[in-house]
Amino acid sequence: MSQLGVECISKIKDGDAIAFQELFYAYKDALFGYACKLCRSPEMAEEAVQEVFMKIWINRQQLDPSLSIRAYLHTAVRHCIFNILKKAALDANLRQSVFHHQPLAANTTEDAVYAADLQRVKSRVLDMLPPQRKLIFCLSRIEGLSHEEIALRLGISKNTVKDQIVKASRFLRQQIEHLAIFLFVYFFL
């Protein structure tokens, strides 16, 4: 299983279904085990492995026989699992936001604890930003200052302010997406 030859990958690239079948049987079990470790769901792991092999066959002309197929397969499975988890987490968030607006009896103590936890997470994520970027972001989003006001206060250009806010927003969004995936995996799988 360890390394299929360059010749086998070249055959797959040329459309050889038997060589592709050899690749599939050589790696399917190891990839399934790896995917299960990532997502703890046999169904999701099977879906990811199938999707990766399907994409390999469809895009076989792009295969590079000189590169490690094992590393490529593991990376592809990891990305596929993360994409599946991200979609599931976003769907769960969507359902939660729909249910959140329903007039149900509220547990105010639980809501207060949740709000405090959420605020701590926000603070930790904000603390991950470089100091100048954090300051600019907080002046904009928390204090409500305009780009021009921030630029004047800090003695920098409006373009720098805008650039730093865009970078901070992108970073925060990425951290929140990773957190949503982690929470989904932790609580629901």
Score class of each variant (00 low, 15 high):
residue 129 L to S: 11
residue 100 H to T: 02
residue 155 G to K: 06
residue 128 M to T: 15
residue 170 R to S: 04
residue 163 D to I: 04
residue 83 N to R: 10
residue 178 H to T: 07
residue 168 A to H: 03
residue 172 L to K: 04
residue 113 V to C: 01
residue 166 V to R: 09
residue 159 N to S: 02
residue 100 H to K: 15
residue 150 I to P: 00
residue 167 K to D: 06
residue 137 F to E: 06
residue 145 L to P: 03
residue 75 T to W: 02
residue 76 A to Y: 04
residue 169 S to W: 00
residue 90 L to V: 10
residue 86 K to T: 10
residue 150 I to L: 01
residue 117 D to Q: 12
residue 102 Q to I: 00
residue 179 L to Y: 06
residue 89 A to L: 02
residue 175 Q to I: 00
residue 123 S to R: 11
residue 150 I to N: 01
residue 148 E to C: 09
residue 161 V to E: 07
residue 75 T to Y: 11
residue 178 H to N: 13
residue 116 A to D: 11
residue 88 A to W: 06
residue 107 N to S: 07
residue 124 R to D: 11
residue 141 R to I: 05
residue 164 Q to D: 04
residue 152 L to H: 08
residue 106 A to V: 12
residue 117 D to V: 03
residue 176 I to T: 07
residue 117 D to G: 13
residue 135 L to E: 14
residue 77 V to A: 09
residue 92 A to F: 10
residue 156 I to M: 05
residue 123 S to M: 13
residue 96 Q to A: 15
residue 171 F to W: 01
residue 101 H to Y: 12
residue 128 M to D: 13
residue 102 Q to Y: 12
residue 136 I to W: 09
residue 162 K to W: 01
residue 174 Q to H: 09
residue 75 T to A: 12
residue 81 I to P: 05
residue 133 R to P: 05
residue 144 G to V: 00
residue 144 G to I: 03
residue 95 R to F: 06
residue 108 T to V: 08
residue 178 H to L: 04
residue 92 A to I: 00
residue 117 D to K: 05
residue 72 Y to C: 10
residue 121 V to R: 08
residue 178 H to S: 11
residue 166 V to W: 07
residue 172 L to V: 15
residue 182 F to Y: 12
residue 142 I to P: 07
residue 111 D to W: 01
residue 139 L to R: 07
residue 118 L to E: 13
residue 158 K to P: 11
residue 139 L to S: 11
residue 89 A to Q: 05
residue 86 K to M: 14
residue 87 K to N: 15
residue 88 A to R: 11
residue 121 V to T: 15
residue 156 I to L: 01
residue 119 Q to R: 09
residue 141 R to V: 01
residue 103 P to L: 04
residue 116 A to P: 05
residue 124 R to S: 10
residue 147 H to A: 06
residue 72 Y to V: 02
residue 165 I to D: 00
residue 179 L to S: 03
